[in-house]
Simulated assay, not measured.
Amino acid sequence: MDIVTLSMWGISLPLMIYSYLKKRGKTKEATHKAKGMMQGMLPDIIAIIFLIGFVLSLLTPATIAETLSKVNPFTGTLFAALIGCVTLIPAFVAFPLVGSLIEGGAHLVPSVAFLTTLTMVGIKTFPLEAKEFGIKFTLLRSLLSFVLALLVAFIMGGLM
């Protein structure tokens, strides 16, 4: 195990034991709720992982990287950013995916644009967000997030 995983276990386990000793009923209730939430999310997470694995078996990271490197860097970045906007992938899956794209030869700028729009702009979650916060706010937030994601990508490309 890596240091981050060990640290998380080292922090979580003692706090969980402390919580259990302090308020046994509430701790049991919280763990049951967490278990139910995880069971509800698990099929979606597994489906996403299988879907990404299937797509990556057809389109290897090297193929995607080669395709992105053949187009104009600005066009490739814009294309990657747009794909990131409409894709709904959990961050814990997206980071290794982008890492494998970069290892496969993809340029850093489109990869960062994909990753930042993936996490900052949510076309699929737009209706829910608009319902909660209003269309004007959601539209403005999404537009600003898209522009800032492109800015971050180009800054990262200039720094590396």
Rank of each mutant, 00 (worst) to 15 (best):
G53K: 07
T125D: 06
F114Y: 15
M8T: 13
S57V: 04
L21P: 01
I83G: 06
A149G: 13
A34W: 10
T119Q: 10
R141A: 04
L118H: 02
G105T: 09
E103Q: 15
V93P: 02
T116H: 07
I48P: 02
L118Y: 05
M8R: 09
G105W: 06
P14H: 02
E129M: 04
E29K: 14
G157P: 07
V147F: 03
L108F: 01
L68T: 04
V98T: 12
V4R: 11
E132W: 10
G122Y: 00
F95C: 09
Q39F: 13
I64Y: 03
K136H: 13
T117G: 02
F74V: 15
I123P: 01
C85A: 01
A113C: 00
A153P: 03
I83E: 07
M16P: 01
S142C: 01
K131P: 00
L101S: 05
L139Q: 00
K131G: 12
G99H: 03
I52V: 15
M1W: 04
L140Q: 10
P61D: 03
L159W: 15
S57F: 13
T116S: 15
V98E: 03
L150Q: 05
L51S: 10
T77W: 07
V71Q: 12
A106K: 01
K33E: 12
F95T: 13
V112E: 01
V55D: 00
G76I: 11
M120N: 13
L6C: 00
T87V: 02
K124F: 12
N72T: 10
L56G: 05
V93E: 05
M8G: 09
F126N: 05
Y20R: 07
M8A: 14
I46K: 00
K23C: 03
T63G: 08
L82P: 07
N72L: 07
T27E: 11
L78N: 09
L144S: 03
I155L: 15
I49H: 04
I83Q: 01
K28D: 02
F74W: 14
K131F: 01
P96N: 06
I48Y: 04
I11N: 07
R141L: 01
M37V: 13
L101V: 11
V109K: 01
K70S: 13
L101P: 08
V112L: 03
L118V: 14
F137P: 02
L148G: 14
L115E: 11
L118N: 08
V121Q: 08
T5S: 10
G40A: 14
M1V: 10
R24H: 15
L13T: 13
I155K: 09
F133V: 04
A94Y: 02
M38A: 14
A47P: 03
P110L: 08
A30D: 05
P110G: 06
F146H: 08
F92E: 10
S69Y: 05
V147S: 11
G10V: 11
A47Y: 08
I89H: 05
K22V: 09
K28M: 12
G10A: 15
L108N: 00
L56T: 12
G104I: 00
L51K: 04
K131I: 00
K70D: 10
I102C: 09
